[in-house]
Computed example of a mutant assay.
Amino acid sequence: MNEHFSVAEPQGSAAGPRELCIEFSASGSEYFRIWIVNLLLIIVTLGLYLPFAKARRLSYFYSNTLVDGQALAFHGNPWKMFRGFVLLAVLMLAYGVSGQISPTAGVAAFLILAAVWPALWRAGLQFRLANTSWRGLRFAFTGDLRQAYLAMLPAYLPAAVIVVVSLLNSEALESKSFTPAQGLIGAATLLIMLLTPWTLSLSKRYQQSHYALAGQHSRFGVGTGAFYLLMLKFVLFLIGYALLAGAVLAGVYFLLQSPLLMAPLALLAYLGLFALVGPFFTVALQNMVWRGTSSAGLRFDSQLRLRAFAWLSLKNWLLTALTLGLYRPFAVVHANRMRLEAVSLRVNGDVDAWVARKSAEHQDASGDAAGDFFGIDMGF
């Protein structure tokens, strides 16, 4: 769960800069009761309760996220979220079924889905921010539709090649000998890998540069090169972990000559992948993104520590596995607490003097209406 803030610097205030801390007061036992009821209702309703479960979860998490001692609030209408859920479900079902009917139908469905997806992404951002408040002030998302499409464009082109070639050349792809279709998919896959940091940069810039509150807009100061450097560090970290884990497993097998011991060791190495490699990327991305987010009167900082988050992730994975998933709500609460409380805000001016801007008069009414009507919340 990401929280987004952008504040207005009061005019004529002589108040000096001060830090606003974020606290997360949720407890695992409280969330477990919400989680287990949500899970049972989702099962009983064959998934139809999902948007209502999400609304309950967000309301609980937001009400326990305190910024400078004041809690956030989520105002999303679950029935509107249900309409958005149905819309997304219909789109995904149509795409899945059309591919089984004919390759041409599958390509057409993909093109329709690709054409509307950036608009749905933007509507989701608008819905979440418009239904989030702090101290009675509603947030807003001001990104326009053109920027949403541009942010997804680098990933769209090679992905389109993969989907279209796969649907139209299924027999050629199953051939044991090399075919042009296989070559195209391989080249497009490589291109996606090379463009992933750029795509991530564009998406984060689109999100972090368009949060607003009380007439103040956020800005994002991290360049594309930083995302490529982050991805390079992540790949090197992944390779280093794989080499180290492989060397340890090979050494243990060579010294003990015990095949039975290899299975639990391999499982530990697999868990270590989630406990170290995943947290490395999470920590580095969170710190980089929030340190690069600011507004005229506010600057974020994030001091999430890899060692602490890695140990927490390992504990969460182990206890979730040992309890057959029942520890999951406790793990979510602990991870959210560590991530949220690692973020702080430094503000210039008097917070009490902030005034909510009249957002309805200054936003793109059509886009806001779409997000509010359908209740689209894509979980950013």
Rank of each mutant, 00 (worst) to 15 (best):
G240P: 06
N38T: 03
P103D: 07
A275G: 10
L213T: 12
S295V: 01
K233T: 01
V107T: 03
L50Y: 10
S302Q: 01
Y31L: 02
W354S: 07
G278K: 12
Y327G: 06
R56L: 10
A365P: 07
G186Q: 08
Y31T: 04
R291L: 07
E23C: 06
T282W: 03
R33W: 11
F32N: 04
G221P: 03
N2H: 09
F254L: 09
S102Y: 09
L88S: 14
T104D: 11
A130Q: 07
W79Q: 06
I36Q: 04
A119D: 02
V7G: 14
F227N: 01
A172W: 03
P259Q: 01
V161I: 13
L20I: 08
A245M: 13
S201N: 11
R135C: 07
Y62I: 03
R33F: 08
A115N: 02
G12I: 01
L202Y: 05
H362L: 13
L213G: 13
R138Q: 11
M152C: 15
N169L: 08
F5K: 04
L173E: 08
E174R: 12
M338V: 00
G186H: 06
Y149H: 08
K233N: 06
Y206H: 14
K54G: 13
G183K: 09
F330C: 06
A188D: 09
R346P: 03
R122I: 10
I101G: 04
Y241H: 07
F234A: 14
P259L: 02
G375V: 04
K315W: 01
D68E: 09
L120G: 08
A370G: 12
H217Q: 13
A284P: 05
W134M: 04
L168R: 13
G12E: 05
E9A: 10
E19H: 07
L58Y: 10
G136S: 11
V164L: 09
R339V: 05
L312H: 02
R305M: 00
S166H: 01
S294Y: 09
A275S: 10
A119F: 07
V116D: 05
W354M: 14
L58V: 09
N316E: 02
D364A: 10
Y228N: 02
I42Y: 00
A151E: 05
L202W: 07
Q257L: 07
A53V: 05
F61M: 14
L236A: 15
G16D: 08
S209R: 05
H334W: 14
G96N: 15
N169M: 10
